[in-house]
Design a binder for these strands. Structure first.
Lengths: 280, 280
DNA sequence: CAGTGGTCTAGACCACCGT
DNA sequence: CGGTGGTCTAGACCACTGG
């Protein structure tokens, strides 16, 4: 299929002033026009000409300023949005320079026995205690389900494919705003019939509960990857365009390297980071 | 500035068959046409109709298949590309379904003293040993520079702003393909005049060298975040569109919590992950 | 209501690349 | 050479939102 050759035009263009659709060669730079505009805007944002929270000129205005069509401006703005510099805006709001939210770091290793005792007494899990330490209020909503293990879960729990698991899904908020999600999977042969199956908070903590059942968590292994949010994830955690997520798989092991749980935590890149220390 | 109101058309549209630019309301779904097409293509990719490495139909063909304009198809394909499902292709190649490269995991903690001795004898750093363990060939090219410390480096090294640092920049390849970059910063008062300033490999390793200088690395702290590549990074590491990077800051401390180095490693999300274990 | 971003169309030229 | 993606233009309608 040939394209745009005007072989049989159903629409006839009648010109008045100048040839439409005739592009002049970009003179200096070797890059597309939209890339040049994106870089220019980036410099103005970095240089403070457009500060965090400022509203950019409208697409029409930018088109006039740079002397290009609105679609070209849109390509440039889209690129900056994908790079996480701009927020989208509907209505009369306009596009705004994204605020650089301070990133919360969560210590993930090396907790002193005293602190452990302390927060357990307060009924807080490690995450909530970490958030509280930084002066914020962490909350979680929990749902529980019994499912067939997905391959990446079954493999880590050393289960057969499609074997039953109990999963506790948490959506966690900090100061009322969505923050991360954490889904913890337990083998059904282990967690079935225990308090883990109930969506209420487990006061002593699931680790202590498993210990009472004869399966102390002796060590764990964290696997970290990064990727773009999958469809649905972005809505569930309100992840803006151009923000990747940190995916943390934490597998807990008991005696004889027996896996007793896998926790899958999704950390949106614009609001969380992780810290690992090898000594307290 | 009013837009597209045909107030004073320099171009007159002469219709032959049907009204141009008249969009029918999308019938079933509540989403844009391009989103529906993107989802449809995603399902076909997930379902195996288009397997990894396959070439998708051309944009023109897709436009004909779905009965929309090429730009609408392009929006859908761009979305899938940003999500990391498709590769771009020039010329007659067409867009291809991206292969899901196996991810290499790198153990980052808990190395036995025996293994440490072994790889030091072989002149390998921890990364090369890790790659070798997985049956691959890791190499690095090193450049060295003396610079003023950037704020995020100065803060971690407890230096004044713009104080001098020695930086060793590594670009590392696995089996000949670009893999990651690792820039290590040392305070100039410590590393100046030592072998660290020279771009050659340091046989015994920089950690051992610093130990000989009286600054043993007693502990470290890793900070992990994720973000999209900044301009230049994508080219330097050949990061495809839609792939985020894992950013690892490793700060090493000697006696009295004195920071002696900061290593900034950029791990492209499509080819690397990290593993942390709390016991060997 | 009016301006803004979101979406879509139709057409055009170009660089690139496999045949 | 010819098809493909990359880019750009000009114009149109819509949904949303603030004043």
């Amino acid at each position: 299929m040939s394209r745009g050759r005007n072989d049989w035009p159903g629409v006839v263009l009648v010109h008045t002033e100048k040839q439409p659709h005739v592009r002049e060669a970009s003179p200096v730079t070797e890059q597309p026009i939209w890339a040049g505009i994106a870089n220019d805007l980036r410099e103005k944002i970095d240089g403070g000409e457009y500060a965090a929270g400022d509203t950019l000129p409208s697409e029409d205005d930018l088109a006039a300023i740079y002397g290009v069509s609105r679609n070209t401006i849109r390509t440039a703005l889209e690129k900056l949005t994908q790079q996480g510099l701009l927020d989208r805006g509907q209505g009369r709001r306009g596009r705004q320079v994204r605020k650089h939210k301070p990133i919360l770091f969560h210590g993930m290793l090396s907790e002193s026995p005293e602190r452990l005792e302390q927060r357990r007494a307060a009924g807080m899990d490690a995450w909530r205690a970490d958030v509280a330490d930084q002066g914020h209020d962490g909350r979680a909503s929990i749902t529980v389900a019994i499912e067939e293990a997905a391959p990446e879960i079954a493999r880590r729990l050393k289960l057969e494919a499609r074997e039953a698991v109990v999963v506790r899904r948490r959506i966690r908020t900090v100061d009322g705003e969505l923050h991360n999600s954490a889904d913890t999977y337990y083998p059904h042969w282990l967690a079935g019939g225990t308090a883990i199956e109930h969506p209420a908070d487990i006061r002593q903590g699931t680790i202590a509960l498993l210990c009472e059942l004869g399966y102390p968590q002796l060590r764990f292994r964290d696997e970290l990857t990064t990727r773009m949010p999958v469809p649905g994830e972005d809505a569930k955690l309100a992840i803006p365009p151009g923000v990747p997520v940190l995916v943390q798989y934490r597998t807990g092991y008991s005696n004889n390297d027996l896996p007793i749980k896998v926790a899958v935590t999704i950390w949106p890149g614009d609001r969380a980071g992780l810290v690992y220390e090898d000594k307290p």
